[in-house]
Design a protein around this nucleic acid. Sequence first.
DNA 1: GTCTATATGTTGATAGAC
DNA 2: GTCTATCAACATATAGAC
Lengths: 193, 193
Amino acid sequence: MSAREKVLDAFEELLLNDGERGATLDAVAAQAAVSKGGVLYHFKNKDALVQGLTERLGDLTAVDTAAMIADPRGPSAYYVDTSVYDGSAIDRALIATARLAQEAHPVAREALAGTQRAWYELIEEEVGTRAVARAILLLGDGLYYNAVLTDEVANTQALGSGAADRAELLEVVAMLKDQAAARERAGGAGDPA
Amino acid sequence: MSAREKVLDAFEELLLNDGERGATLDAVAAQAAVSKGGVLYHFKNKDALVQGLTERLGDLTAVDTAAMIADPRGPSAYYVDTSVYDGSAIDRALIATARLAQEAHPVAREALAGTQRAWYELIEEEVGTRAVARAILLLGDGLYYNAVLTDEVANTQALGSGAADRAELLEVVAMLKDQAAARERAGGAGDPA
DNA sequence: GTCTATATGTTGATAGAC
DNA sequence: GTCTATCAACATATAGAC
């Protein structure tokens, strides 16, 4: 493995385990088993490290969306299935990038937004209905996750905050509730179709 | 307002806007319009500040769960409805705490877990089915949000990662998809019951 | 209760040896 | 390509004046 990749792996690992604050140049150097000077040879400053990670996420997103398209169950099934963290390469890159985004790194935020956009487009195409696609995406990624990672915190009027949007989401939840009640009556975990 | 609360508000505000890294003692002092010494009089060190915030979250969670119980639409409707960030006191405390949890503050992680537990218990009681309750909670809070904020990153075998759990979640998504298709056929956004 | 020093450790980054 | 100084900037925390 190239030394550059080794350094990037170290940065990612530290972000996952210790957060952004723990991912200092010293710590990255130690984790990658090189000196600080060695790290700064491959990445001239910390921003370059962040940049390197977002580029990795971009590459992995391309691979992921290809798999999403190829999955016979359809994009949304693939999406939810893989939304459970299992330590895959894209999971790691995604969460590491999320840690950076939390600390207001614009580059990291853009990278995350790009990944989500790619997911959304495929799901929207599959289910047809805008509301359901958004619901699946929001319910999957998590409403709060969005709030934490985007500028929704600063901008309360971001997408998904409107009363009408909220009502649509509530309908979906009502659907889930009704379906659960029906299943209770039928008494089993059988085919919901 | 007490000076203590003013300092805590400043800490919270900085966490929301600038992340954990921006919430330095200097910055907190400036935001609260007191000196650093003034901050350290009310909170003897930074950990005490974190502690103060988590206690605030605990208090707000108690208020929130009471409202959740009182809501005639039921806990899950209340839950999803209020999962959209709107700058309420609990939203702010929650996200500020989340920022700290991201940086591996154990106290903050426990506080968040406690809040989620309170929500889960009410939703589980309402819908009856374990799987649906978990789905609503996970789909609401976000699968990734969980991964980011808990030790799921370090511990891949955390709840919700099992193949059976995953299959249950997929069924719920299939339900959503079927319902969306049925609604498309009916041609409207009408009553899903 | 609130302020001003001040001590002490870290962090990101540079310069230059090997 | 990789390392060892070395530095200025900044962070937390203490001591003690007012």
